[in-house]
Design a protein around this nucleic acid. Structure first.
Lengths: 158, 158
DNA sequence: ATCAGATACTTGACTAGTCAACTAATGCCT
DNA sequence: AGGCATTAGTTGACTAGTCAAGTATCTGAT
């Protein structure tokens, strides 16, 4: 009698999974949901969402030249069709500034504002510690393994 | 010169990650986002969301006795504080029926309705195929490895 | 019997995400 | 140069998710 898998116990599922692929898919959703919520709890204490944090990091990485709106969308970790409104909220909070691009007036150049940089600087150590606490119990080899497996899964998404 | 990691190229990040733990966290979020969206696209063609699908599967598993509302919430793959409204929508579509429990009138017993069963039956082969197409390119060993790593990550969430 | 506390939801107000339709600006291609 | 396709972003209408506060019911201790 093989013991029920951990994920199976967690969701109190009585029947076996139809396939290991299904079980892995469910484990992936559940695990990421937990990770995302912890992340979210930390960031929301500072008044921003995970997606907003991601935008701020992208803009910090881009430096003072900034980036056009849709270029930000392409760099997002999670797809964000509502990028305009995401930026609206960040601009509203004074964390980001926007300006219509003079050479191509269709584009809007977005830049991180000083309060945005300050906020990120304050968050950096907290987020580092969080990453570590969430994933740091894996060895370096396991992390590499995980990265490899996730790469393969993404490769399978048309 | 080590080549930039795959995930790093995908999000066009120029600087290296601060830690492998961070890189793995980002890969986890991105991979799951993609998986969830594919799932979502299939289910939304049938008019339900991923969360609603999850509720229907839980209720099918519970059989004709049904389950009280909060018991469903506990079995969800992804946490769902809005379980009441989730059920409202499913009931509105006629996929679920609810009834106040006679022995404990605080509880509401939820059951899957016949149209819900029909819908799930139609979705089963489609979802099976999808799981397979998303994760089936991993070997059985890799899937086990992935499950193990994800278990360890969940164990690290307080 | 009664009343404090716990349980099981429910509701309201708000924020965020989604999809489709729309506008403005640019870049060809004759 | 005029016009059609393309690109870049915005807006509106809608659905879904979130958090806090509220209500009804039950349970156990006096």
């Amino acid at each position: 009698m093989t013991p029920a898998s951990r994920i199976q116990q967690e969701i109190k599922q009585t029947r076996p999974f139809r396939s290991t692929a299904q079980e892995a898919g469910i484990a992936l959703l559940r695990t990421t949901d937990q990770v995302r919520r912890r992340m979210s709890a930390v960031l929301e204490a500072e008044g921003i969402t995970v997606q907003q944090y991601n935008v701020l990091r992208i803009l910090r990485g881009a430096g003072p030249e900034g980036l056009p709106t849709l270029e930000i969308a392409e760099r997002m970790i999670e797809q964000a069709p509502g990028i305009t409104r995401l930026l609206d909220r960040l601009e509203g909070k004074g964390l980001v500034s926007r300006e219509r691009c003079p050479t191509d007036r269709r584009q809007v150049t977005c830049r991180i504002a000083k309060p945005g940089l300050t906020l990120l600087a304050a968050l950096d150590p907290i987020v580092d510690a969080l990453d570590d606490s969430m994933l740091g119990n894996l060895t370096r080899t396991e992390l590499k393994q995980l990265l490899h497996l996730l790469d393969r899964i993404r490769a399978a998404q048309a």
